[in-house]
Amino acid sequence: MSKVVVITGASGGVGRATAREFARRGDRVALLARGQSGLDHAAADVRAEGGEALAIQVDVADHHAVSAAAQRVMYDLGPIDVWVNDAFSGVFAPVTDIEPEEFRRVIEVSYLGYVYGTKAALKQMIPRDTGVIVQVGSALAYRGIPLQSAYCAAKHAIQGFHESLRCELLHDKSNVRVTMVQLPAVNTPQFGWVLSRLPRRAQPVPPIYQPEVAARAIVHAADHPKRRERWVGASTVATLLGDKVIPGLLDHYLARSGYASQQTGAPRDPDQPVNLWKPADERTDQGAHGTFDEQAHPRSTQQWLSRHRGLIAGGALVAAAAGIVLGRS
């Protein structure tokens, strides 16, 4: 039986790939994002994969708009079964070069957008005592890195919010489930449209994974939400944590390597689009992939092991090697 799925940030990147993954099962997918061209193409993708699409232009920083979008989904597609929070924005710059208004905007989109989406989903799910909310997180929810202070702060906040909510649902003996999918570096268009004040072009910190890897993990988490967290792949930071590097030494390591590892050798295009205040895909579709296809991995061994219960011990070993603990409810 098909499900009603809502995805924020669905017009590009991981959200776009996730929409296609749900559509392949014949699900009814509501696509929430700001850019109209990206939304139109994402809806066409969903229909091409066999799903039913509902595109809603919305800024997740507006809680009234998010609530209204959830109501429209219920009226047009039916009660919401799965809500995936994925919309985010960020700024690539040192703290001293980020304006207060930019910090506020990142937090409003990348953290409060998750809060508003979660509350809109809970409003429908709690009375029915069923439903799954997937928070798309990051390895940076546990370890901040230089040049992404606003984004790291938002991911840390989501982690704390998720843990608090999960405890409350357990206390109420609710059958509504919440889970997180913690992502490594992913080849998405964000590196070409994020606000950047770096001298060179921004890039994800290797190893890099394709957005379809994240999408498969998100869909699997929605189907099997009892696990508290799922990690898609090991990051450099997580690997260092797994090796039990003393925090102070990790700070020094990131101080030395964190700037170069987040920039290519090419100068930043001063005219590149910026999606912090306005969508970068309003008139031009950006798709799911960024410009790092040659470096990006199409699969994650860690993800595969963790998905197969018969090999869960092996998955835990791989996770432990990356400084990861797979929790269970």
Rank of each mutant, 00 (worst) to 15 (best):
A221F: 15
V132S: 12
V232L: 01
A280I: 07
Y151A: 00
A202G: 11
V82I: 15
L195K: 15
L195M: 09
G315A: 12
D271R: 06
F22M: 07
D45Q: 02
Q190G: 02
A87P: 03
D76Q: 14
R228A: 08
T284K: 12
A215S: 15
G242V: 05
Q295A: 15
T18F: 03
A322I: 06
G38E: 14
D45V: 00
P298K: 10
A44V: 04
I107N: 11
T118C: 07
P267C: 13
A221P: 15
T236Y: 03
R24C: 06
M74T: 15
Q124E: 06
S174D: 00
H224A: 04
V245C: 00
L31R: 01
V14I: 15
V46S: 06
P189R: 00
I98D: 05
P94E: 02
A255N: 10
K119T: 13
R177Q: 13
F103N: 12
E102D: 15
G233Y: 09
E52F: 03
Q36G: 06
T301Q: 09
I208R: 07
I56C: 02
G50R: 09
D172Y: 06
K278Q: 14
V245I: 14
P146M: 09
I7F: 08
I126P: 00
H224M: 08
N275C: 14
T239A: 10
V82S: 02
L39Y: 10
D269T: 05
L254C: 01
T18H: 04
A319Q: 09
F88Q: 11
S138T: 01
I126H: 02
T239S: 05
L169N: 06
D251Q: 08
H41W: 05
P207N: 02
